[in-house]
Design a protein around this nucleic acid. Structure first.
Length: 518
RNA sequence: GGGCCGGUAGCUCAGCUGGCAGAGCAGCGGACUUUUAAUCCGAAGCGCGUGGGUUCGAGCCCCACCCGGCCCA
């Protein structure tokens, strides 16, 4: 489905490296070899094959000649080392790689001659017998092989050497250009096993979350991504248009309001893992589309949800690390064994910022914010100023998991007032490694209060706050039917994956991060 | 949005105060039936991100722009 005429210009620009592969493709066809096969029966992965040999070796069931079992394996050629009438190659699949060995007198002249038309990056299937070479490497002696897909463009495989003295791994060349790695993730994944590992870990993490919540009787649901009103967070949306209805629709910035409608509907425990979209800048911790977990539980308050979050993270960290309760993030050891420290928002500002913000007037706050030169200081509301101070002065100090609790009411329009201090709300954020990982409330279930909070947001919007929330009449109607006391949590999955895979950029945990077109 | 850094062969990168554009790996031809960055011999391959400008001469200097990274907002 390429653009018209693209083929010709691409043809013009073919490098000699690519050109020679097209020539080999034609040569294969001339010899009656179909370069793009339909299927191949595989009996072993490369790692299972190696294991099968080692098992036979230890059981003493190798043949007199030292041969192990027969296998059929498939994968990508990563290296070809021809020696005239014999050839060694490496075949890589998802599980790793294994050496394969072709001999002319085993394959026959015709079949052996086809090796001249193979290249690194080609997909092949091989059938043969496992043995161990003089150099001690478990290898498949190939009896027959089939080309599964000709690669017309070489992958930039790195060369890797283990220093025999220090045991240090050195990588030669390879695929390092980060821009191209993000744009051509297929090549990145094909070439860099570490990258594959990150995404396998990501899947493992999400699976652990589902298992944890499922076991607690949570129901996984799907709520609208296209929404007539957007809400549940403070952010600017992506706007699109529905032609048949001739109306604007927004890509959701959060799942929150729909999930709480389901609590009104009596589902009691619900969660959703899905993409949210926020129309804001891109940096190390922000991608315009990102994955969010939200879960809501009837009859729970934010204290209960803190325990849930502690237990959830413990389970996830154990799963991902294979049993440990800690990880190292960018050189900093992080311990996830609960309980986590709890600190009130204003106490944290006092402790780390040495500021008693509740006693400061707006001008003093403004000056404090200005001292680290934030734009638009003059138009910021008081709560926004305080939140700037929090981000700047407090968050960077919080490396170990800590629950920051009891936020100002104004910046939390969906949270219940704190018992005993109505200026605050029952809300917490979990901060780890200086970053917000989770955000949670005792959910506001008083429709009258909620209506007032929405109206306050509308006033902020009228004053130019583009991130203020919108008035959602249907949501108020839902609350009027009655929502039980409910605890709710949102967890940014990408950031959690970053933490648990020690990746410095959110782009390293998103398969296809948002990029400008080339 | 601002600052800094980067974009040179398929990949990873050199390229001095402006003077014929390079290396390693990959690829191509040849030798080689236990190699593993295979080795040996040989011959190729670069519109230097794009567009202007300065200059006898620009990969290098100047301007604008495109794409990316890091830091700041």
């Amino acid at each position: 489905m390429g653009g018209e005429g693209a083929g010709e210009s691409v043809r013009e620009r073919r490098s000699h490296v690519v050109e020679s592969r097209y020539e080999k493709l034609e040569a294969l066809r001339r010899r009656g070899v179909e370069p793009f096969a339909y299927s191949y029966d595989v009996t072993h992965s490369t790692s299972a094959a190696r294991e099968a040999f080692e098992v036979a070796e230890q059981a003493g069931t190798l043949s007199d000649g030292g041969d192990g079992p027969d296998v059929r394996i498939a994968g990508r050629l990563t290296s070809l080392r021809g020696h005239g009438k014999s050839t060694f190659a490496d075949l890589a699949d998802r599980s790793g790689k294994i050496q394969i060995y072709f001999r002319q007198n085993e394959l026959g002249e015709d079949a052996y001659g086809l090796l001249d038309l193979l290249d690194p990056s080609d997909w092949i299937g091989v059938e043969g017998t496992l043995f161990r070479t003089r150099m001690g490497e478990v290898t498949v002696r190939v009896r027959s092989f089939q080309l599964l897909a000709k690669s017309l463009r070489p992958l930039p495989f790195g060369k890797e050497e283990v220093d025999p003295e220090t045991g240090e791994r050195r990588v030669y060349s390879g695929f390092a250009d980060v821009e191209q790695r993000y744009r051509q993730r297929y090549a990145d994944l094909a070439v860099n096993p570490d990258v594959r590992e990150v995404f396998f870990t990501r899947t493992k993490l999400v699976r652990a979350i589902r298992r944890f919540l499922d076991d607690l009787g949570y129901v996984e649901v799907e709520t609208p991504i296209l929404q007539p009103l957007y809400g549940g967070a403070s952010a600017r949306p992506f706007i699109t248009h529905h032609n048949a209805l001739d109306m604007p629709l927004y890509l959701r910035i959060a799942d929150e309001l729909y999930l709480k409608r389901l609590i009104v509907g009596g589902l009691e425990r619900v969660y959703e893992i899905g993409k949210d979209f926020r129309n804001e800048g891109i940096d190390r911790t922000h991608n315009p589309e990102f994955t969010m977990l939200e879960f809501y539980e009837a009859y729970a308050d934010y204290e209960n949800m803190m325990e849930r979050v502690e237990a959830l993270l413990l389970a996830v960290v154990r799963e991902v690390t294979g049993g440990s309760t800690s990880v190292t993030y960018q050189g900093v050891p992080i311990e996830f064994a609960p309980p986590y420290r709890r600190m009130a928002y204003f106490d944290a500002l006092r402790e780390y910022g040495n500021l008693d913000v509740r006693r400061m007037d707006d001008a003093a706050l403004r000056d404090a914010v200005r001292s680290f030169a934030v734009e638009d200081v003059d138009t910021m509301s008081r709560p926004k100023l305080i939140d700037e101070l929090f981000s700047e002065l407090v968050e960077p100090h919080l490396q170990q998991p800590v629950f920051i609790t009891d936020f100002p009411r104004e910046i939390s329009p969906l949270a219940k007032p704190k018992r005993g201090d109505p200026e605050l709300v029952e809300r917490f954020e979990l901060i780890v490694a200086g970053r917000e990982i989770a955000n949670a409330f005792s959910e506001l279930n008083d429709p009258i209060d909620q209506k007032e909070r929405f109206l306050a947001q509308v006033r902020l919007r009228e004053q130019g706050d583009e991130e203020a929330q919108t008035y959602d009449e249907d949501y108020i109607r839902a609350l009027e039917y009655g929502m039980p006391p409910t605890g709710g949590v949102g967890i940014g999955i990408d950031r959690l994956v970053m933490l648990l895979t020690d990746q410095p950029s959110i782009r390293d945990v998103i398969l296809f991060p948002t990029m400008r077109p080339e």
